[in-house]
Design a protein around this nucleic acid. Structure first.
Lengths: 247, 247
DNA sequence: CCAGCCTATTGGTATATACCAGATTCCAAG
DNA sequence: CTTGGAATCTGGTATATACCAATAGGCTGG
């Protein structure tokens, strides 16, 4: 059935591995351009003389490598390039805004006014129950989701914030319209599995891994005014920083 | 066959999902302590009345969530707690050293002297071909691998470095023995799939995702003297920073 | 008591098959 | 030309089965 080329050398080299190597080479060599479609599970199965489940497995590995993304039942496509986010230079997406060539668009998923719970009141140094603006947005590169951002802003400091167009950098908005430039930020980055909602918004299977970035943004007076949580497709994120050693 | 409780509500809720939810609850509630063993694929299959492949799928999802790790053909075990690495305060593992309760040990995998290639000479601002010390170490928590570190140090600055015991913080070593305290660092963090060697050292299946952290460490004179690359088990890593906005 | 072997168990790989539901394509009826 | 629906894609879920290799545990003979 299979035409494994490893029969001469001792043994092993799984079948799905050959498919992975083949697809990776195709993608990295540029034989398949970003957003081009990959062969279907069944097609790969026939092409390599393996079962669909084995082909599927290879494709899922390619997805995990970040080389491709799947889009529901439409098929799988080659991933675009990784973005770099300099956390010691910027807060929020100011570094990305203006990069028109990336095809960055923002989709507002929800916006509302809520009351601070215990966790948020601690992060934003406000009383529990104080009004906060909460808005959720998805950032897309050429219609391909890159990350989700949930932001919580102290409502008292930004009256009418939700009346503005949220399809832009909110830190720019806060700086220009409310004279609240960001001064510093506390950032936490970790890798974790996505829940169902997040996976749905990012177009990923549930329990795929992604990168979570949380940040509290402080104003010139040293007080926090905004808390944000971003969930990135892992293969698209890259974070850089320049740190001065203290103590 | 199965005893799915979702027959009353409309439909769906995959079988493997029930297993995931059950295992997650068990682990998060503390019913299963860190490093305790999980039921085998076959045992879960029988317990839930599903096939082994479906049980396997649920277990792999639990692994991806970081709640458990597999250890070759010995079985699967509950993951220990996540570590936090403050990149704006420290370089290398000084933050972790001294935390005896974590059971941190270091295994030296290899050490050698090499010549700088183009990439390394650029990062370390030395001539191509200049001698560098290279050593690879695995950091373990109670015998459970947490991350791999490859470090490259400019040999000229640290004569005889490899004669020291490398089962300790090398930045401390460089500071105490060679009077080269770290002053600042350039750090890059990304998520990516592991290759075979890395997966082997970390006890993970190949093509699992992990977090890569690269850093160039600069001395007080502003010159780089050490380049390191760490590959973390994603579920164990957490990076934090305090950043001042510039520009 | 310990070394060596045998066996049971575990995860890893692989197949063939089946049905479902969303997406796309295309053609025919209006 | 447009709309409707059918046929045909796609991936998602699930099963039953098979063999392999590495591990762990128990037993047995020295």
């Amino acid at each position: 059935m299979m035409n494994r080329t490893d029969s001469d050398e001792e043994k092993k080299t799984p079948a799905f591995q050959m498919v992975i190597d083949h697809l990776r080479e195709q993608i990295l060599s540029g034989g398949l351009a970003p957003h081009a479609s990959l062969p279907s599970e069944r097609a790969i199965g026939e092409q390599f003389g393996i079962s669909r489940m084995t082909a599927r497995r290879a494709l899922l590995a390619i997805e995990m490598e970040g080389l491709a993304y799947s889009s529901g039942r439409r098929g799988r496509f080659v991933s675009p390039q990784r973005l770099t986010y300099d956390i010691s230079r910027t807060v929020s997406l100011s570094a990305l805004a203006g990069k028109e060539e990336l095809g960055l668009t923002i989709k507002v998923v929800s916006q509302q006014t809520i009351e601070a719970d215990a966790a948020l009141s601690a992060k934003l140094a406000v009383a529990e129950g104080e009004a906060l603006y909460k808005y959720t947005r998805v950032f897309l590169l050429k219609d391909h989701p890159a990350f989700i951002e949930e932001e919580y802003a102290v409502a008292r400091l930004f009256p009418g914030l939700l009346d503005h167009n949220l399809q832009q950098s909110t830190t720019t908005l806060m700086e220009k319209e409310y004279d609240m430039p960001p001064h510093s930020g506390d950032i936490t980055i970790r890798m974790r599995a996505l829940n169902e909602d997040e996976a749905g918004l990012l177009g990923l299977p549930t329990y795929n891994a992604g990168i979570e970035l949380e940040q509290v943004i402080y104003g010139a007076n040293g007080k926090p005014f905004c808390f944000g949580r971003q969930i990135w497709r892992g293969e698209l994120a890259e974070f850089s920083a320049h740190a001065i050693v203290r103590g």
